Computed example of a mutant assay.
Amino acid sequence: MAHCGGSPSAAVHYLAGAIASTPENPEPYAVLAELWRDKPSELAEVVQGADSLRTVLAQSYINFLQDDMDGAALAIGSVTGVRPDIAWARAPWFSDERFVGAVSPDALAEAAMRTMDYGRDLDTESMRERFRPWFEAIDVAAARQPLPEPLAKMAILLRACGLTDASFALCDRADSVERIMLTEVVRAGTWRKLGDLQQAVAAFERALALDPANWSLYLDLADVRAEQGNFTSAVQLIDQAMIYEPAELSLRAAGAAYRARLTGSRADLSELIELAPNLPNDSYRDLLIDHACAGPALPAELVAAARRIQNS
């Protein structure tokens, strides 16, 4: 505090910077704990409604000091999502028995999901090393309280980090408690990552058997069928999905794209051109346009109009 002009805010900023440079160093946490003991109300005011990376990082440790292990997990998950290139989970408290023995599976699963919020590439050796404490915490949570939905969500992080065998094993563990739709969706995504589209199809079909009115599952399965080149099946699946959610933009766009690819329908490509600019995911929009523009004998001017959307 003496070095920060007596300002708790400046002290938090300084200590969080020290943690960021070496997350495993216990000294900044000890100073932060002392500050929390001496000035709890001032420090609480600093981190309340935290929105900067450094204040959220401080909040994660203060939550730990308050025995709010779920809050600690969620905060460090958010920080990790912003900067996964820093090994935040090497913090001594993250591997402490007080934390791993008390954090709820639901909170740890949500925290794991937050680490992937910004779509960073986690499938590298260096990332796997940084995320090792997460894997260890997941192992403990899975053994302590194997709830199917949290296990499935945690399996998504394992997959993102390239640990596909471990991801499958966690899905199998979830199934041993109760079979749920989400587990099959996660399993399908893992097979897709591995390039085994037939296994992905089988997993999505099992998911649909568990939740047959879920339009999103039909769309997922249709997309895989399109990837396989089976546009007849893709169109049929979209038609089934439309029974449940006929106004859904992504279904309408996918249906138009897959029909245009299958039949060379001018009307369907025109519909896709109308819908595509409103799709929220640019990469998915571009994929649908690629499929549609490969349809037989489509007018060159319509294909050009579709391509302009990709370049806009």
Rank of each mutant, 00 (worst) to 15 (best):
A207V: 08
L182N: 02
E205R: 15
L210W: 01
E24R: 07
G255A: 14
L57H: 05
A253V: 08
V79S: 02
I289R: 01
L272A: 07
C171I: 12
A304F: 00
A18P: 00
S41K: 14
E184K: 09
E248Y: 10
R114N: 11
M116A: 11
R285V: 08
I180K: 04
V186S: 04
L208F: 03
G264Q: 09
R128G: 03
N311Y: 08
A253I: 09
L108I: 12
V56G: 07
C4M: 13
Q59V: 02
D139K: 13
R83W: 05
G189F: 05
S41F: 03
Q145I: 08
L182R: 10
E149G: 02
F64V: 05
A207H: 04
F94M: 08
L298H: 07
G195N: 07
A213N: 12
V177H: 12
N281W: 03
I156G: 00
A89C: 13
A102F: 05
L35K: 02
A142Y: 05
N278I: 01
A89P: 01
A109C: 09
V185A: 08
L249F: 06
Q240M: 07
W134Q: 01
S60P: 02
P296A: 14
D290E: 13
K153H: 09
L197N: 10
T190Y: 02
A294V: 02
L157W: 03
A160E: 14
G101E: 14
S312V: 10
P105L: 13
D172M: 10
A297L: 04
R307N: 12
E301P: 00
L288F: 05
A253D: 05
P296C: 09
E125T: 09
A109F: 03
I62D: 00
P26R: 13
S126Y: 00
Q145W: 06
A253K: 03
S233T: 14
L208A: 06
R187Y: 04
A202Q: 13
D286M: 04
G77H: 02
Q66M: 11
P299A: 10
V47E: 02
L182H: 07
V235A: 11
F135Q: 00
D282M: 07
A305P: 00
S95W: 01
I309D: 06
H291K: 12
Q48V: 06
A160N: 10
L15Y: 07
A73Q: 01
E136L: 13
R252Q: 15
E42W: 03
A143E: 15
